[in-house]
Simulated assay, not measured.
Amino acid sequence: MARITVLDDGIELDGPTLVEGFPGVGLVGKIATDHLIEAHEMTHYANVHCDGIPRVAVYQDSDPSLTTPVRLYVDPEADLVALRSDIPVAPDAATEVAGCLDGWFDETDTFPVFLSGLGREKDEEPPALYGIATGDGDDALTGAEIGAPPESGLVSGPTGAMLAESLERDRDAVGLVVESDPQFPDPEAARILIQDGIDPIAGTETPTDGLVEQATEIRNAKQSFAKRMQEATEESSQAEPLKMFQ
């Protein structure tokens, strides 16, 4: 049964900003949300039970307690929620997962910020960041001075399914698309997501020096996860140029 199990009823949310971190190209969404959770010392707020999420149990280092592979973390003072996913979601399950979370978005009046990587080979230029929106989400992009994409494209995977759900319901939402390494975890692209996208939209201040200083450590820690993603690329949330399909 699809449900969101809240672990702390004492936490109240008032129209929070949610940052979605399903894994995709460069693992940028996951790296960014994992960093937000650690930097803001966010509280494990809820477990996500959605049809389409693999029935597995997750445990953490130095903690015997089991939990779900997809979880919500919250910083009540900042009205910030982060969705952390420890697994990819199969493409045929993306719509089910999107519909499950959509109901919770409605209940909590959540403003979602969806994250996606656009595969680009690395060069000396910093990764470019673009914004897409549904409903009145473009107002948030304008306020954060995030530019529009320079070419047509599409977003796939669970992130694409949730954007499609927001479009169908005319929900205010934004998607942040950042150029990312197509083969390896990309902490630098995740830093751009936080610094130039998430923080201006959510009104937060997140230290990101560690993402650059510990880039090698982060890449090594995420490498096995990235390998699994490469072996099943159709499960990734990613942005792709539309001309590939024309």
Rank of each mutant, 00 (worst) to 15 (best):
P150F: 09
L163C: 08
T159H: 09
D186E: 11
G147K: 13
V177K: 04
L176G: 06
L163W: 11
A190P: 00
D170S: 14
V178M: 04
E145M: 09
D170R: 13
D136S: 15
P187Y: 12
G157Q: 05
A148Q: 15
R171A: 09
E165V: 13
I146H: 01
V177R: 04
A161Y: 10
V177D: 02
G147F: 11
A140G: 03
L167C: 04
D170L: 10
A173M: 05
D139I: 14
E151N: 13
P185A: 10
A140D: 02
A148E: 15
D186A: 11
Q183V: 04
P158A: 15
V155K: 03
L193M: 11
M162G: 05
G160S: 02
P149C: 08
R169E: 06
G143L: 05
D172P: 08
A190R: 03
D139L: 14
E179I: 05
I192D: 01
L163T: 03
P149F: 10
A173V: 02
L141D: 00
G147I: 08
L141N: 07
I194N: 01
I194Y: 03
V155F: 01
R171L: 09
G137C: 08
P185N: 08
Q195E: 15
G147M: 08
P185T: 06
I192H: 05
L163A: 07
G175W: 07
A140F: 05
A164V: 01
S180K: 09
L163N: 07
S180C: 13
G153Q: 06
P149S: 12
G160V: 00
G157L: 02
T142L: 04
P158H: 07
V174Y: 03
Q195P: 00
A161K: 07
D138H: 15
T142F: 07
E188T: 14
G157W: 05
D186T: 10
I194K: 01
V178P: 04
R169Y: 04
S156K: 09
R191V: 02
A140Q: 05
S152P: 06
A140T: 00
D172S: 14
G157I: 03
G143Y: 09
P187A: 08
E151H: 13
P187G: 05
R169S: 11
A190K: 01
L176Q: 07
L163Y: 11
P150A: 11
I146D: 00
T159R: 04
E145N: 14
I194D: 00
R171Q: 09
E179D: 12
E145G: 12
V178W: 06
Q183M: 10
T142C: 01
D170N: 13
L176A: 09
I146F: 07
G160L: 00
S156C: 08
G143A: 13
A161R: 05
Q195V: 12
A161S: 15
R171N: 03
G143I: 02
L154H: 13
I192L: 07
A161F: 04
Q195Y: 10
P150R: 13
R169H: 12
T142M: 02
A173G: 03
E168P: 00
A140H: 11
F184S: 13
L141T: 10
G157V: 07
T159I: 07
P150I: 04
A161L: 05
D139E: 15
V174R: 02
S156V: 14
I192W: 02
E165M: 13
